[in-house]
Amino acid sequence: MNWASLLGGFDPLTFAAALTLVFGASLVRGLTGFGLAIILVPLLGLIVPPTDAVVISILLQLLAGPIGLKQILANGERSTAFPIAAAAMLATPPGVWLLSVTPPDVARLAIALIALAAFGMLFVPAKAGAVPGRKESVATGIAAGLLTGFASMPGPPVIPFYMRRRLPPAIARASMLMVFFATAIAGSIAAFAMGVADLHLLWVSLLFYPALYIGTRLGELAFGRVSEPVWRTLVGIILGVAGVAAIMRLFN
Rank of each mutant, 00 (worst) to 15 (best):
P169W: 05
S26V: 10
P168F: 11
A222L: 15
L202W: 10
G141C: 06
P154D: 02
A126M: 08
P125C: 12
F15R: 04
G145W: 04
I56T: 07
N2P: 11
T51G: 15
L6N: 02
A86N: 00
L44A: 08
L202F: 11
A172C: 01
G65E: 12
W203P: 00
L113W: 12
I67F: 04
Q71R: 15
P104V: 12
I185P: 05
I72Y: 03
P94G: 11
A245E: 14
L6H: 10
T183I: 06
F34T: 05
M178D: 01
G30C: 10
L60K: 04
V241F: 06
S100V: 07
L73H: 08
T14H: 13
F123R: 09
M248G: 02
M121P: 08
T140W: 02
A211Q: 08
A174E: 00
P210S: 03
P156V: 07
A112L: 00
P49I: 04
P125Y: 09
A126D: 15
G95F: 03
M248R: 05
A246K: 07
I84W: 01
G187R: 05
I38T: 15
T233S: 09
T183W: 02
Y162S: 06
A17I: 15
R249G: 09
I238G: 03
S227G: 11
F192G: 07
S188W: 03
L109N: 02
A64P: 04
F223C: 04
S100A: 15
R78G: 13
G141Y: 07
L21A: 13
M178I: 15
F119H: 11
S152P: 11
A115H: 05
I114G: 01
E136K: 08
A211C: 03
V196M: 09
W203V: 08
G129Q: 13
A193I: 06
L43P: 00
Q61T: 03
A191G: 13
T183H: 04
G219F: 06
D52Q: 10
F15M: 09
A222I: 08
A4F: 14
S137M: 11
L202A: 15
A74K: 04
I159R: 05
G240W: 05
A112I: 07
I185V: 12
F181A: 14
L199R: 09
P156T: 05
L239K: 06
A172N: 08
G120K: 04
V179P: 00
P132R: 07
A211P: 05
M89Y: 04
I185T: 06
V28Y: 02
I47L: 14
A25S: 13
A191Y: 07
G155Q: 10
P93Q: 09
Q61A: 11
L167M: 14
A115C: 00
L7D: 11
L239R: 05
A118S: 14
K70W: 10
S100T: 12
E77R: 13
S227T: 15
F34W: 06
S57Q: 08
F123G: 13
I237K: 09
I111K: 05
G35R: 06
F180W: 02
K127I: 12
L31E: 11
L13A: 15
V226C: 12
V158A: 07
G215C: 03
D198A: 03
T80D: 08
G215M: 05
